[in-house]
Simulated assay, not measured.
Amino acid sequence: MTTSPSDHRPAILVIGTGELGGSVLSALSQHLAEHPEAATLAVLLRPPAAGTDPAVDPRRKKLISKGIDIVDADVATASEADLTAVMQRFHTVISCVGFAAGPGTQLKLARAALAARVTRYFPWQFGVDYDEIGRGSAQPLFDEQLDVRDLLRGQDATEWVIVSTGMFTSFLFEPAFGVVDLAAETVYALGSWDNQLTLTTPEDIGVLTADIVFAQPRIRDTVVYVAGDAISYRELADIVERVAGTTVTRTLWSNEFLTGQLRQDPDDTMRKYRAVFARPSGVAWPKEQSYNVLRNIATVSAEQWARENLG
């Protein structure tokens, strides 16, 4: 369905249509609208519910109108063999299915990609530097990310590309994360005011991923570091003050405090993330050395995002 016998364009499959997947699809489809000879594009969607007509689904109609083919499969319930059968029709597979899919999903997708012998695989690793953080961190799902890296690095039949993006910019300002409390006019530093964070918006991740996909010479078997911005918690407090036009209370949550909080409720997702992002390493890298800066691709800064979204 993605190629005909006379169509020799590489076929790209994007898995996931959430905030990240939607951004990656949008950027890829925009590139292909300008360069239709470069590839074909498809997306993996959950099969329509029984008794519903997929032809009237507005999301499906919109995707098809953009020239994006649709493949039906449910990542959560599909077996590795099922996913292999889907992937083997594609040259490049880009997974945008994150931790919400549950433990084991990242490994299942990676194994299916290798079994399908796809030419290139972009695993869902759009986050921190898992190599630097290592195993046994406060977020146990990170260990599976390292398992995926070991799997990919242990073979040479499928090229792989990991795009490290840092934290989604919006997540830093998410009330549930608890670092920026606008109502209380308070900013909390995790671990130290000098600890840094790399931040990138999903929209920028989409643009940069598309650029990486089509870059020449081809990027393969490596980690690519992108950075929409890189700021310290001290700089974050300064940004919030400038955007809000007020002085904020600055409170330090020490590593000991965060560890104690996690010990009280070890299943709390946000406490896990706060403990991780209190680290002095593995969650940030210099923006000036990032792929986007080296390629002169503009990205949204943390302050720009805040001014546009914290009105």
Rank of each mutant, 00 (worst) to 15 (best):
W253R: 15
E19N: 14
V223K: 13
V71C: 00
V179Y: 08
V300I: 15
L294N: 09
Q289I: 04
P202D: 12
Q30I: 01
V56P: 01
S95C: 14
P123N: 10
E19F: 01
R59H: 10
N292K: 02
G21W: 07
W193G: 12
F90Y: 10
Q261H: 08
E80T: 04
F257C: 08
W253Y: 14
F173H: 12
L151Q: 02
F122L: 05
A184L: 11
A55V: 07
Q88F: 02
L172W: 08
F168W: 15
A76K: 15
A284K: 04
V207E: 06
E34G: 06
G245L: 11
S6F: 05
G228E: 10
A78G: 02
A298L: 13
G206T: 09
R117W: 03
S164G: 11
A302H: 09
N255V: 05
E185M: 14
Q145K: 15
G178N: 09
A11Y: 00
D131Y: 05
P175F: 10
V223N: 14
L310K: 11
R46Y: 00
S192Q: 11
L107H: 01
S29H: 07
Q88S: 15
D7I: 02
G260W: 14
M167F: 08
W305I: 13
D268Y: 05
D211E: 13
W124M: 05
D57N: 15
P48E: 01
G228W: 12
A38N: 13
E37N: 11
V14E: 07
K62W: 08
F257T: 15
P266Y: 02
L107K: 09
G21A: 06
V240N: 07
S4K: 12
G282D: 04
Y225Q: 14
L182W: 07
P48V: 02
A49H: 04
R271Y: 04
P217W: 12
W160G: 03
T299F: 10
V187N: 12
Y233P: 10
V248S: 13
A189L: 03
L262M: 11
P10V: 03
W285F: 10
T52C: 05
D238I: 05
D211S: 13
A215F: 09
I70S: 00
N292C: 03
V243S: 08
V118G: 03
N296V: 11
S254R: 12
G51M: 09
F171V: 15
Y130C: 09
Q216K: 15
L151K: 00
Y121R: 06
